[in-house]
Amino acid sequence: MGFKKRRVKLEDIARRLNISIATVSRALDENPRVKKSTQEKVFKMAKVMGYMPNQIAKSLSSGKTNIIGVLIPRYDEPFFIEVCRGIDQYARNHNYKILISSSRNSYKFEKENLISFEKGLVDGIILSPTHETENVAHLNDLINKGMPIVLFDNIREEVSGADHVIINDEKASFEAVEFLIKKGNKKIAFIGGIKQKKVFQDRYKGYISALAHHNIPLYDELVLHCNSLDREFEDKEILNFFRGLNISPDAVFACTDNYGLLTMKTLLKIGKKIPDEVAVIGFGDLGPGEIFVPTLTCVSQPSFEMGQKAAELLIKQLNESEDIDHIKTIIKLETKLTEREST
């Protein structure tokens, strides 16, 4: 038969040592008002009894949890995993921990998660808004209440009071498509994500701008905006797209690494040679493209650095004096094209 173990409290340690709860609390905080010998006794007893500090209780007295809330649209996207790694590394180096949650690409869940964060669990928030986030009133409300916020990636409009970390998606896409054009490709397909998402809108703008700049025709048939938010269905969408084409593309610009790899998988499945018949460029350069055969040419996005910069900006806000107004900062990171075997 199992048993339920009661969590050890400060009063339990105090009772065993026959001292006050206040003394135990001060000793665990290494308060100089408590003698070193008493501190040592308290720490030893706490260890023997298996005492674990109550973070929520500590935050009530200090007003800080030293926890950063991170809200991303999905867990299965390598880009967001890499950004979170960057946030975590910088945060831990500055004595903060991170609490990651997903909005599951839902504006409703985004708001619910932010409400949970607001209820005292985190000191500040790093957020990538969903494609459904057209109204930022909920973010402005948090900022007006004093919650430090940093936004990254899919920022539909600038939010006053929140710092931003971004890349120039349109410029990066223009350069990738221009690279394909300069290699002699004239029937270039576009594969992006859901139309409502700002980053995919900007990458599509870069694609059509590059075609127009070089007088290359835009074939509507060669444009796919994936509606799926699940990898299994994205795979099927891309396969159906290529099987249904009447025009054979000689190159593909894919808006993520995932779309790029699924594109190459599909092209090989239907008997196309890469890059002899079809060249492929992805966007992200987050690792898997280097081990696929052929290796994937990518727009290299500084995802890890984006996470580091987001954490740096947030912690800077957390350390600012409450007496001064926060000066909004926008960091725009550079991308580069990494050429591999797929082009």
Rank of each mutant, 00 (worst) to 15 (best):
M45V: 06
M45F: 02
M45G: 04
K47D: 13
V48Y: 05
M49D: 15
M49L: 15
M49V: 12
G50I: 11
G50H: 08
G50N: 06
G50M: 03
M52R: 14
M52G: 01
M52Q: 14
P53V: 08
N54T: 13
N54G: 09
N54D: 15
A57Q: 06
A57C: 12
K58Y: 01
S59M: 04
S59D: 07
L60A: 15
S61F: 04
S61G: 05
S61I: 04
S61T: 12
G63R: 11
G63K: 11
G63E: 09
K64C: 02
K64E: 11
T65Y: 05
T65K: 06
N66G: 01
I67Y: 11
I67A: 12
I67D: 10
I68S: 01
G69H: 07
G69Q: 06
V70M: 03
V70Y: 03
V70T: 08
I72N: 05
I72V: 05
I72R: 04
I72Y: 01
P73E: 09
R74S: 13
R74Q: 10
Y75E: 08
F79N: 11
F79W: 02
F79T: 06
F80V: 00
E82P: 04
E82Y: 13
V83G: 11
V83T: 12
C84N: 13
R85C: 13
R85T: 07
G86A: 08
G86P: 14
I87T: 07
I87K: 09
D88Q: 15
Q89W: 06
Q89S: 11
Y90R: 11
Y90N: 07
A91V: 04
R92S: 14
R92H: 13
H94E: 13
H94Y: 07
H94C: 04
H94I: 01
N95Q: 11
N95T: 02
N95P: 00
N95V: 00
Y96K: 08
Y96D: 11
K97R: 06
I98N: 14
I98D: 12
L99F: 14
I100P: 05
I100H: 05
S101W: 04
S101E: 12
S103L: 01
R104L: 12
N105L: 07
N105C: 03
N105D: 15
S106C: 13
S106P: 10
F109A: 06
E110V: 00
K111V: 15
K111N: 08
K111D: 09
N113R: 03
N113L: 10
L114N: 01
L114V: 00
I115T: 15
S116C: 08
F117N: 13
E118V: 00
K119L: 08
G120M: 01
L121W: 02
L121K: 10
L121C: 02
L121H: 03
L121V: 01
V122A: 09
V122P: 00
V122M: 08
